[in-house]
Design a binder for these strands. Structure first.
Length: 600
RNA sequence: GGGGCUGUAGUAGAGUCGGUUACAACGCCGGCCUGUCACGCCGGAGGUCGCGGGUUCAAGUCCCGUCAGCCCCGCCA
């Protein structure tokens, strides 16, 4: 049924043919996107990764090729030789880049037939994602997702050339490495030659890149896969890609300056957006105060306002008690939203409840300036005036209040701010607002484990002026850490590292990692720090998240060729799967009782 | 571990208050058609209503459970 390729050589890609090619004899190869059979004349839209070209088969001109074309169906793989011709007057298709020409086919070869695909591969058909993932190789033929992956390649190329131009060396680090405490759950790989021992897949090449600095490579980068066995989200996959960088003899400003240059170059080359440098900075404390979260969407205002001082002595017990217990009373002004219905307000209350808020007080400012609100009656005229002034309340505005422990009040209102920004269309999808967030706390108290844990990671250096705090109030020490935030998404983060063995040991101590454990888990790093480690620091960007923003993808799966489902399975390969008893025996592994295993 | 949404021909959907043979579109198959481009016209085939149980004279529809996909909380240094 199908023909051999023979000695045919492709001369052009489908999407590149233009008026300039008229008169040329060309040989195209690709997939049949669509066939239009007029009884006599047959048109075939031939597709490859560059686009679509129209093949014209005329029974009068070449009966043999035309007869062959009658059997052709969608997604057949064909090769065609013909002459690039102008389309007749009035039949030019301005919607297609190749719409001014067509190829008058003289010879046709069917290189492979194809079953009818389980779903249409055109740009119009919405397909359930589980089906797309099962037939991923077909889904990947579709233009939208091909464009994403092609852009991803271009971004990777831009990154490589920028970093190379700036003295970075691309060096690979192990995939089979050692499990370390702290951080995410590891993916483990059993060792056959060391029965009972396990490698861990890297959560990031953190320790190795620091050791490369100790080795004197000065600047390192890697576009590298990382693995974290945690639950998935729309922007989180168990294996994901980092643009991982480390630099020697630098402080924070040096890292941020080099890296924002890279980001600017990527955005210019990928989507022709000019990133204004330097990227503005705000401290973690300021971000929380003004936006409630450490990854604010800066495309719109609607900042949070702290009303704790104004309401702490008010007659509204809910607010007064929160203030008395050290909590926060904050509010935001949803401009022009006094028209919200009761149902919409309930929806907002449900939304903040997700983040632990027990309620959401509201005030609608009426056209006559009066306050419609269940809580207005609890405040004095003076208090109302102060609240109104603090929030710049105007007729038609909707004021929304949260009162809780600082963490809950900030997160609930901060997330509400982001939610409203999207709902009200304040977040312009064509706008790109970057910010560095700096001065993160070094440590965070873990109530469950009753110990401090590192906010960034255990190798992050404290601010020089906060080092004395490590002995007195470690929880107040700030870190030389920085995140790059874009449109409400954290796209990168890094820090200056501890390069002094004594400080690193002290850090482990603060984290409740004993000397023996530190030696066992991180001994090689501690040793290395004693052999002349330069001051160094670095950063890692989430390439997948960057690509989501550059492509406008709603899901991380749309920028990854073969992604996993929310349950971390691959619907195409059906990974993970069971393995032979023999394989397990070689690894010295015996499975727990079947009742403890997932049925499959 | 928890909350929510979805599941009906190959695809994406409609299906009212539980009531006749589950509907139209796209795709597919056949026929016709020499300038279409999401071609058009005529005809045809195609269904375990995710799966299991229950209520009922009667279930796509109501109830319970379960599976899968998605979104979220926890988790993700």
């Amino acid at each position: 049924m199908s023909d051999i390729l023979g000695d045919w050589k492709r001369t052009h890609f489908c999407g590149e043919l233009r008026k300039e090619h008229i008169g040329r004899q060309v040989c195209l190869m690709g997939w049949v996107h669509r066939r239009r059979d007029h009884g006599g004349l047959i048109f075939i839209d031939l597709r490859d990764r560059t686009g679509i070209a129209q093949l014209a088969l005329d029974p009068d001109r070449d009966p043999e090729a035309h007869a062959k074309a009658e059997a052709i169906r969608n997604e057949f793989v064909i090769a065609a030789i013909g002459t690039v011709s102008p389309r007749p007057q009035g039949t030019v298709n301005p919607k297609m880049p190749t719409g001014e020409v067509e190829i008058e086919i003289s010879e046709l070869r069917i290189l492979n037939i194809a079953k009818t695909p389980p779903f249409m591969l055109d740009e119009f058909t919405e397909v359930a994602e589980n089906l797309r993932l099962k037939y991923r190789y077909l889904d990947l033929r579709r233009e939208a997702i091909q464009k994403n992956l092609i852009l991803r390649h271009q971004v990777a190329q831009t990154v490589r050339s920028y970093l190379t131009d700036n003295g970075f060396l691309e060096i690979e680090t192990p995939m089979l490495t050692k499990s370390t405490p702290e951080g995410a759950r590891d993916y483990l790989v059993p060792s056959r030659v060391n029965l009972g021992n396990f490698y861990a897949l890297p959560q990031s090449p953190q320790l190795f890149k620091q050791l490369l600095m100790v080795s004197g490579f000065d600047r390192y980068f890697q576009i590298v896969r990382c693995f974290r066995d945690e639950d998935l989200r729309a922007d989180r996959q168990p294996e994901f890609t980092q643009i991982d960088c480390e630099l020697s003899f630098v402080d924070r400003d040096d890292v941020m300056a080099v890296m924002e240059g890279m980001i600017a170059k990527v955005f210019k080359s990928a989507i022709n957006v000019d990133v204004i440098l330097p990227i503005p900075r705000l401290t973690f404390a300021e971000a929380l105060d003004r936006y409630g979260v450490d990854n604010p969407d800066l495309r719109f205002e609607m900042e949070l306002v702290n009303l704790t001082e104004i309401v702490k002595d008010s007659g509204f017990k809910v607010f007064a008690e929160v203030a008395a217990k050290g909590g926060l009373v904050k509010a935001l002004n949803a401009k022009g939203c006094a028209t919200f219905s009761r149902k919409e307000l309930d929806g907002l209350t449900d939304f903040v409840a997700i983040y632990g808020a027990k309620g959401l007080a509201w005030v609608k400012i009426q056209e006559d300036g009066s306050w419609q609100s269940p809580i207005a009656k609890f405040f004095t005229t003076q208090e109302l005036a102060s609240i109104g002034a603090a929030l710049d309340a105007q007729p038609g505005d909707l004021l929304l209040f949260g009162a809780d422990k600082p963490a809950v009040a900030n997160e609930a209102l901060g997330r509400l701010r982001g939610h409203l920004g999207n709902k009200l269309g304040l977040a312009n999808p064509n706008s790109y607002k970057f910010a560095w967030v700096t001065d993160f706390p070094l440590l965070e108290w873990d109530g469950e484990e009753r110990r401090h844990v590192a906010v960034h990671h255990p190798f992050t250096a404290p601010l020089d002026e906060d080092i004395p705090l490590l002995d007195t109030e470690p929880g107040k020490a700030r870190a030389k850490a920085y995140d790059l935030v874009l449109n409400g998404s954290e796209i990168g983060g890094g820090s200056i590292r501890i390069h002094n063995q004594a400080v690193q040991s002290r850090m482990f101590n603060l984290l409740g990692i004993g000397e023996e454990e530190a030696q066992q888990k991180f001994g090689f790093l501690l040793d290395a720090l004693e052999y002349g480690a330069p001051p160094h620091g670095g950063i890692a960007f989430g390439l997948d998240r960057v690509m989501m923003i550059l492509t406008g993808a709603g899901s991380i799966r749309d920028v990854i060729a073969f992604p996993k489902t929310q349950k971390a399975t691959c619907l195409m390969s059906e990974a993970p799967g069971v393995v032979d008893e023999k394989q397990l025996r070689e690894l010295g592994i015996r499975l727990a009782a079947p009742s403890q295993q997932k049925q499959s």
